[in-house]
């Protein structure tokens, strides 16, 4: 069984304890307390963090010393038989994502376009932008990154399923897998490396691909001249080095993204997992603060990167006058392939 690579000594000598001090869902009196809680977790003792963590993934980004605090929290919760969300919800996710041989594999040569297990991604990964890879789509539980189970403290499911997913891709004989879902890219890079799993192909983040394609299609771009507020997804916290891509893509297509309070490291979760883990009061509060903040920037659109966030927030932002749109659709709009979204 794979084991989380976690360097206790790095934490023992950590001068910041940023992982917990920056947490948006828990407050600590200062470094001393946060550090003490982290050490309790490391030693397998009970810690309030194990009871209060809302599973937002952010501490994976806050830790700049190469450790994996969130994966450790999830490991410890599972070891103690703790559930984050209700047991039936946790099991529902495990059952729903079980591999049943009902996957779809397109015309694969050396590249695959991973649509995870999210039907919307199959629709997004089409048209001029994806013309060279759209036919090479793969979809299904067999190709789904199991990272979602981190929210439910079921690291055992990840350790069991991720090697199978990697093996399924290996069998396709691909050199590159373009990941349309942040979580897949984060899984093949951050999670796989944290557990010492070898990935025998090159995971490609779709925004890298998108940026290159939009540069190639530059002559077709008509600047959109619109303003968006970006809903950064939890799994983007696993790959913070990829954050600048958003601005680069938006610049190319003439989209403004004014500064807001909840952006970059301080971004807020879409709220849906929080609803399951911490209840509606916190989820409603997070969603309200998030949308209020989007509106105060004067944005017309709420731009998504993850279809799960889009599903969680689309209706809510629409009701408050923001048009929900995925960044890929914005690019399609810029090259005249798609009508402008209406609320």
């Amino acid at each position: 069984m794979y084991k989380l690579k976690f360097n206790d000594k790095v934490c023992a000598t950590c001068p910041s304890s940023d992982c917990l001090l920056k947490c948006q869902y828990m407050t600590f009196s200062g470094h001393k307390e946060a550090h003490a809680e982290m050490m309790k977790i490391i030693r397998g003792k009970d810690s309030r963090v194990l009871h209060e963590c809302a599973t937002c993934y952010a501490c994976e980004e806050y830790c700049k010393r190469g450790n994996h605090p969130f994966y450790l929290i999830s490991e410890r919760r599972e070891e103690k038989g703790m559930f984050t969300a209700a047991r039936p919800i946790t099991n529902q996710w495990i059952n729903m994502t079980e591999m049943q041989g009902k996957f779809l594999v397109g015309d694969i040569k050396d590249k695959a376009l991973s649509c995870c297990y999210i039907p919307e991604l199959g629709v997004l990964g089409t048209g001029e932008i994806f013309k060279d890879v759209a036919a090479a789509g793969v979809f299904g539980a067999e190709f789904m990154c199991p990272a979602v189970h981190t929210h439910f403290a079921k690291m055992s499911v990840i350790k069991e399923r991720l090697p199978v997913v990697i093996e399924n891709f290996r069998r396709l004989g691909v050199k590159e897998v373009i990941c349309l879902h942040d979580e897949c890219y984060g899984t093949f890079t951050s999670i796989a490396s944290a557990y010492g799993m070898e990935v025998p192909f090159k995971p490609v983040y779709y925004m890298d691909y998108l940026l290159e394609r939009m540069k190639e299609l530059k002559s077709k771009i008509k600047p959109l001249n619109i303003t968006v507020a970006y809903q950064r997804p939890c799994s983007n916290r696993l790959i913070p080095d990829k954050l600048p891509l958003v601005k680069k893509i938006l610049k190319l297509i003439g989209v403004k993204m004014p500064k807001r309070v909840y952006q970059d490291e301080n971004c807020l979760c879409c709220g849906e997992v929080i609803r399951s883990v911490s209840g509606y009061k916190l989820a409603d509060d997070v969603q309200k603060r998030n949308i209020d903040d989007m509106l105060q920037t004067g944005a017309e659109y709420c731009m998504f990167n993850c279809p799960a966030c889009q599903m969680a927030l689309a209706e809510k932002v629409s009701k408050r006058g923001l048009k929900p749109v995925h960044i890929i659709d914005l690019c399609k709009m810029a090259i005249g392939e798609k009508e402008r979204e209406v609320a």
């Binding site: 559930f83 969300a85 209700a86 047991r87 039936p88 919800i89 529902q92 849906e272 609803r275 399951s276 209840g279 509606y280 599903m311 969680a312 209706e315």
Partner: peptide, 24 residues
């Protein structure tokens, strides 16, 4: 909606039950 969630809070607290996302 809040009344419904509050009515079932004890089952959520005991992790025996929870609300499932119905957007899809």
């Amino acid at each position: 909606r809040r009344m419904i969630w509050d009515a079932l809070q004890e089952f959520i607290d005991s992790k025996d039950g929870g609300f499932m996302n119905v957007q899809y």
